[in-house]
Simulated assay, not measured.
Amino acid sequence: MDNFFKSVRKHIDRLDINQLRGQYARALEEVVFLDTLISTIAQGILVLNEQGEIVRANPAAHTLLGMAPADALRYLKIPVGRASKSEITLTYPDTRTLEVQTQPMHGPTLVLLRDITAEKARTNAELRAGASHAIHDLARSVAHEIGNPLNAISLNLQLLARDYPTNESIAECRRQVKRLDGIIRDFLQALRPTKLALTAGSLVEPLQNCLETLKNELKERKITVRTDFARSLPMVALDKNQMEQVFFNLLKNALEAMKEGGHLTLSAEADDTSVSVSIQDTGCGMGKEQIAHLFEPYRSTKTNGHGLGLMICSRIVHDHGGSISAESVKNAGTTFTVKLPRLEPRVRQLES
């Protein structure tokens, strides 16, 4: 290190005052240019230190958030040192949707904020139509490829049952065929958007129902479960059956990500406008590329996955007026967070 500074000093000693002034002026021009660029860009930019504190924020971040970035940071819960992508809906001073992306930078964390309100409004109908068309094509293919041979098997089993009415093996086969037929019907039904049957209830209840259904599988896979639910969570408007479908899918994904056992942490909390539930596993995690394409059809982290499960979860949650996001670290685990609006948003009196 001493040799380095000696070398730098020798270089400086060889420069006259005019050369030093010229290099300083050029460096200053570069700094001013970059500062102007960051200040005028329409995308919000935040730089967080390793403690999650803001060390730089451009004016666009203040405008997009509708408040001082340091104040907004308490509500955004931005992951520090992790790559993530999520969407948030803000209601002050007007309703808008922001895309929030984080990218670690060998210490600091870069946070990019982008207003996608107009983009979502402009393309939402097209995306829904395209996704719906693709899903219906897949549904028809599934019905043809599986339904037809399944019907043939069922008919032949009925004929065998007439000749061997007491044969337990035939009876068991018929039960399993009936079960498989029900699974296919449920799968196809899940792909078709259905009208929500909203009632006032707890967002934790459907999660607990799914946990009860999966308790034996959790035990077999040697997965421990820890719950951290805040007391007296406010009510939300939800379709319990459809939200159970969301949580069941997320829990199954978490189980399948922990091949050798692990820990599952379920938490729930509320703020002034919403109630959120988080499902955190200690599984294999996902990379930045996988995170970027979550909730898109035909993209799956599983070898034989079709990528429709998370897309259906996203559709159901957004139909509830909520949001779903994911954070993940490769080989460390993944956290999914589902957020639904409170039935009665809490009004906080602003400090004078």
Score class of each variant (00 low, 15 high):
Arg56Asn: 03
Arg174Ala: 05
Asp272Gly: 10
Gly22Asn: 12
Ala161Lys: 12
Ser86Met: 08
Gln245Thr: 14
Leu127Asn: 13
Glu260Trp: 01
Lys6His: 12
Gln101Ala: 12
Asp186Cys: 11
His62Glu: 15
Ile279Asn: 10
Gly322Tyr: 01
Asn18Tyr: 08
Ala134His: 11
Glu289Lys: 15
Leu113Ala: 08
Ala57Gly: 06
Leu266Lys: 06
Lys219Cys: 05
Leu98Ser: 06
Gly201Pro: 10
Asn249Arg: 12
Asp239Gln: 10
Thr334Glu: 09
Phe295Gly: 02
Glu256Pro: 00
Gln189Pro: 00
Leu37Met: 12
Leu98Trp: 05
Val225Tyr: 02
Gly283Ile: 07
Leu198Met: 07
Met258Trp: 09
Gly309Lys: 02
Gln51Asn: 13
Ala143Gln: 12
Leu157Asp: 02
Gln245Ala: 11
Leu98Thr: 09
Leu214His: 09
Leu198Ser: 03
Gly307Gln: 02
Ile116Ala: 04
Ile153Trp: 04
Lys302Cys: 03
Gln103His: 11
Ile45Ala: 08
His144Thr: 15
Lys120Leu: 11
Arg226Asn: 15
Tyr92Gly: 00
Thr337Lys: 12
Leu37Phe: 10
Gly321Met: 01
Asp271Lys: 05
Tyr92Thr: 13
Ala72Thr: 08
Asn331Tyr: 04
Asn49Phe: 09
Glu168Ser: 13
Ala270Thr: 10
Asn18Pro: 00
Ile316Ser: 09
Gly305Tyr: 07
Ser267Ala: 15
Asn209Lys: 08
Ala131Arg: 15
Gly147Pro: 04
Val204Ile: 12
